[in-house]
Write a protein that binds this DNA or RNA. Structure first.
Lengths: 178, 178
DNA sequence: ACTACATAATTGACATGTCAATCAGCGCCG
DNA sequence: CGGCGCTGATTGACATGTCAATTATGTAGT
């Protein structure tokens, strides 16, 4: 198990079968985790993970309001994605758009009472689920290892991103994790 | 760093700040990884990760053909998702649908020459990217730890899924990892 | 053969994402 | 002041996903 690779690392072009198996396990498990959390959030509070990310940011914002572009930066979404999503959330009365006094191009996104209530109802069950399915599933050592893996992989990703100006670098990520 | 939790684990309801940080890092990094791989696949071969999953399955299938429902089971997609996706792939001449002799309700999905060629062009760069961004980023110990984490988390997920018949259990996962 | 139910696959409606315009207001510079 | 180029935000076109019908065909039981 410790030496399934006859050739030295540097000489290989492609992952071995075992490496590929670990890769698949890893990425699929992370996905399953996300989709389970998303499903619970949805069934317990009728919020999508995107909704949650937006509400979380607004809840923490000064006066429960934020400029649209700041919000986009905060949760790391593309502006058009946010715009579409805000439209849907506004229809459901979770947020409201107001004109911005300082800059009349801008919009201020405001948390509505409905939105605040939805968020408050969602938050404890959601964090409990994170604890149940992630934190408590792991030993302390595994939790540390998870943090270590994340840091290592992120370092590689951003190095690679810098080298090739990857457009997709971190696009979909940093979204709905709260 | 080893004891940021005064209260015993069992007494806690919610994750600590540090646990939440690790959780976010972990899940966001996995997402970033997926999105980087997807972006590279797209730019190098004009295939989405969904396309790749379908083509991979067909490429390995007997005669480069498979019943639609088997294909869905193999890559673990919902049937309607597959149906929609096959429609799009058929328009691009990557696959073809044929009537099934044995069961006239059924459809056989066949890899076209175009589809085969696209897949072959995509596969080596894709695996190289997996190696660069995942396998080679990690030490051997980290790789083992990744496999261990995946197994542990998956066990918890399927236990939780069994307990509450979660509909979303592993829906989006196991898709496009190849 | 006829009814009733299960199965294979597609469809339609809609949620969510991406990318490339578009539109309007802000500011600087001559 | 007037033009011109940023910037903030939205829009439209389209890819992708989910869920709940719908369609057509197989199969079992009487």
């Amino acid at each position: 198990m410790t030496h399934d690779t006859p050739r030295p690392r540097r000489a290989r072009q492609l992952p071995t079968t075992e490496e590929l198996r670990i890769w698949r396990d890893f990425i699929e498990t992370a996905d399953t985790l996300r989709s389970e959390l998303t499903a619970r959030l949805q069934s317990e509070s009728s919020l999508s993970s995107g909704d949650y990310a937006v509400l979380l940011a607004l809840n923490e914002a000064e006066g429960h309001r934020m400029r649209s572009s700041e919000l986009a930066a905060h949760i790391d979404w593309e502006r058009s994605r946010l715009s579409h999503h805000l439209g849907r959330m506004e229809r459901r009365d979770l947020i409201r758009r107001e004109e911005c006094a300082a800059d009349s191009r801008g919009a201020e996104i405001v948390l509505t009472p409905t939105g605040l209530q939805s968020f408050r109802q969602a938050t404890v069950p959601h964090l409990r689920a994170v604890r149940e399915l992630f934190v408590d599933a792991l030993t302390h050592e595994q939790l540390i290892a998870a943090g270590d893996l994340a840091a290592t992989l992120r370092a590689r990703l951003s190095a690679a991103g810098r080298q090739r100006g990857s457009a997709a670098q971190a696009k979909a990520a940093r979204s709905d994790t709260g």
